[in-house]
Design a binder for these strands. Sequence first.
DNA 1: CGAGTTGTTCCGCTCAGCGAGACATAAAAC
DNA 2: GTTTTATGTCTCGCTGAGCGGAACAACTCG
Lengths: 265, 265
Amino acid sequence: MTGQVISFPREAPDVVNETSSTLKAFGVLEVLVRMGRPVTLSELMLATELPKPSLHRTLALFEEAGLLSREPDGRAYTLGQRLSRFGLDILRNDAAAAERRIILRRVVAEIGESCNLAVMHRGDLIYLDRIEADWPLRLQLPVGGASLRPHCCASGKLLLAHRGVAERDRLLSKMALERFTDRTITDQQVLQSELDRILQNGYAVDNEEYVIGVACVAVPVADSRGEVVAALAVQGATARLPLMRAIEFVPRLREAAAQISSTLG
Amino acid sequence: MTGQVISFPREAPDVVNETSSTLKAFGVLEVLVRMGRPVTLSELMLATELPKPSLHRTLALFEEAGLLSREPDGRAYTLGQRLSRFGLDILRNDAAAAERRIILRRVVAEIGESCNLAVMHRGDLIYLDRIEADWPLRLQLPVGGASLRPHCCASGKLLLAHRGVAERDRLLSKMALERFTDRTITDQQVLQSELDRILQNGYAVDNEEYVIGVACVAVPVADSRGEVVAALAVQGATARLPLMRAIEFVPRLREAAAQISSTLG
DNA sequence: CGAGTTGTTCCGCTCAGCGAGACATAAAAC
DNA sequence: GTTTTATGTCTCGCTGAGCGGAACAACTCG
């Protein structure tokens, strides 16, 4: 079920082009792990495009630490025991994420459109998880790492709206309201009243404000104290999911949001 | 090699006392992963005995990179998608994976039917490995990338059954029980008692619940701690492998499962 | 034996990581 | 309300870890 992908106005992640030494080294591990067989130094040079001595140093470091080990022939690198153990520990540790993902999955199965869960962190919108509906036309979004500007997507506006007035104003004033489409809100006043309206409605919409042809509806997710800490959103191509239809999903989204709430301390 | 005269004389094997910044950072990841739940900065300070600003910087770096992410409360750190994926890739490709593959091959050779090894990953069932028997009638399954819903295949039900009671109930109540065939279990109660029965029997079956004409039997695979983390299953067209015959393979599967256990951890 | 390929070491420059301390914020105690 | 305590975030100058061009070593091949 691959198909057309609506890509999205932000830089693409390359294999190993991190600035930090730690991330660069981690990237080497990832490449090596993904190759799925013993790999020599020169093979890794091709795969990572890193200079030879740097790679060598990095690999030696990991070997010393027991994360990697060498094949008997003394050349190719394989995964060490310590790394295997790490992998197992990672798998064991997914309980929290699993529960939320299951809730998301169910919503997606029932309404047949893609959903995602996002939080705000230091003024940026970050996706915690995202389930794609099984449609050929897909949206590529940066789960986890990179961030979105909050002023132009439903989740972002929703979370802005639910901040205290003081902080909302502080964020808004610092925020550059970059234009992405001709519907993007780029005016402070307009955004302000949009946020007020969101509080009244209890949900937020994005009508092709970020990407032409994509609409989005978001509802709040509160923690145990009633504080809104996350946003649950449905998102789809307007050709299939016009805004009006998306809004019909709000009750179902609210239901799921309540379930997600109950998973939060 | 120079400087740093005041070092620990022969300091005990503390968790994070590497010299290299990269290894220190990796150690932080290991500690975090091993704690098995969302962890706050100060908890990590205790666990790693690293200075606060350094830890903060490290965590922020990993968060930015998508390796870690924050719980919606904005404080606790959890595994990010990138790290989860990394964990899976490790298990698929580590040195022990080759051993497991050999064990799988032998089983397939002896019983003449396809076998696979699967784990749960964020609420989905994912194949670590799969060996096809040499029959013309084959089953095309998503080895690697894609995932299966757990409620409709033997391995999925088995792994659900072996979760702690509390967690099982939580997951189950939120799960979408999509129907794939007329035998798919789509009722919570029925699934509950099915899981109980699986625990009693020590194995799980799938009698055309996912694909018409395909039956499946799965047995548990424990890691070194005795925790069930994977499922070993035999799978085949019912025309050739009716469920009754598949169940006769359970003792042989158990034997192989024990061997695979010794490669985990 | 020389020409090519691949792994290892050298070494001086530079900037990323460092962490004490200050600051910010939220909860708890008074 | 004010103060205290716990916790997370930011600042900033120092310095040594990481860097990678270049040389060297080792191991093929023809």
